[in-house]
Design a protein around this nucleic acid. Sequence first.
DNA 1: CCCTTATGATTACAAGTGTAATCTAAATAC
DNA 2: GTATTTAGATTACACTTGTAATCATAAGGG
Lengths: 124, 124
Amino acid sequence: MKDITKTEFEVLEALWEQSPASAQEIITRLNTKKTWHDKTVKTLLSRLVKKQAIDFEKQQRSYLYFPLFARDEYVIKESESLVSRLFKGRVAPLVAGFADSDALSKTDIDELKALIAKWEQDND
Amino acid sequence: MKDITKTEFEVLEALWEQSPASAQEIITRLNTKKTWHDKTVKTLLSRLVKKQAIDFEKQQRSYLYFPLFARDEYVIKESESLVSRLFKGRVAPLVAGFADSDALSKTDIDELKALIAKWEQDND
DNA sequence: CCCTTATGATTACAAGTGTAATCTAAATAC
DNA sequence: GTATTTAGATTACACTTGTAATCATAAGGG
């Protein structure tokens, strides 16, 4: 699958929020956070279709769009790609970077502990 | 600082490996992993200079290039940017994604435990 | 039935990117 | 000292991206 750009990703986010959705619905959702012209959103929709990130079904004259993969699927792929480029594929150094730059909260720590516990339970 | 592209990043990697370095040295280092023409590497060096990611000092006729920021600095910024876009700024869900897709090793777990311990020691 | 409107398709266009080739001037080889 | 090599500077060129405007067409308003 071709790379999704940052602007295209924002359109995808709107679709992951709820789909299928018409271009108008998507434009409305996006307008709460972006100032894009509706023509711009439609261009991005077309490009996402061409990249096979979304598809649509014709509903009378307009289209109902929907994503072709789940958000989770996408974000994991992106994360693994970054971790592989920047940290030789290992995630701990990334977390260490967050710790060093004081970007770790107590909540993060608690969640990390929980998922470590779960991992150990699943892998013992 | 302007965005560094993936190809530019590879050139930066060669410089982080050791600097300052001449264009020739950089080309040699890169040729062990890429098949870029030397003109291509020189273009990338120029673009990195223009983006103020690297600088050089003239040494007789050729230049000795060096990075203007540390690798750590860069990778943390990139990581935070991705985590902020994809995970609302919180790193634990990213790690959870790795756990779910079986991309966590025992080593990762040990390192995570160690840095959690350190965090707790620093923040009690 | 014709006119306006709304939809998607097509086109636009400058800036950035990947991937070099050509130009210019200095150094080096005879 | 002229010819060649070599460094960086400049130019190239197709493709992508951000950001739309225009075109074609079908549906609905009167």
